[in-house]
């Protein structure tokens, strides 16, 4: 028999809980507030007039392609300041299948050392 009650249960995570339903209600409320605020806006907007033109301090508008902020432009500062990290990472990804196999051997070796030598060390202590 299908009942509504289990659908409204809170999600128990062991040490806390959360309820998606409350969250949904909050999102709907926020959406309504946004719609109401939008309603206060001016209504004289007309399509296909000068109003829709971009205004760049009187400078001419660029081509659409140039106006668009592209994928590699985003987070420029972040990647630039952490360049040493990303350069190292890029260097790691050589795209050479031999290196992929080499990484496998390296991981096997590390796990081997950790599991076997480490265990003997722990045993000695």
């Amino acid at each position: 028999m299908f009942t509504l009650e289990p659908l409204l249960e809170t999600f128990q995570t062991g040490s806390g809980f959360w309820s998606p339903i409350i969250w949904i209600v909050a999102i709907i409320v926020a959406f309504l507030v946004a719609v109401i605020l939008r309603g206060f806006g001016k209504k004289e907007y007309k399509e296909k007039t000068g109003q829709t033109q971009a205004f760049l301090s009187g400078n001419p508008e660029y081509e659409k392609e140039q106006m668009h902020i592209k994928g590699s432009n985003l987070y420029w500062g972040f990647t630039e300041s952490l360049e040493w990290v990303f350069d190292a990472l890029k260097k790691m990804h050589t795209g050479n299948v031999s290196d992929y196999a080499l990484w496998f051997v390296i991981v096997v070796a590390i796990l081997f050392i950790v599991l076997i030598t480490g265990e003997n060390l722990m045993g000695a202590i």
């Binding site: 890029k90 990804h93 050589t94 795209g95 050479n96 299948v97 031999s98």
Partner: peptide, 9 residues
């Protein structure tokens, strides 16, 4: 040659 076909993306 495996180095020539791979190459970083």
């Amino acid at each position: 040659d495996v180095r020539k076909i791979g190459g970083p993306e």
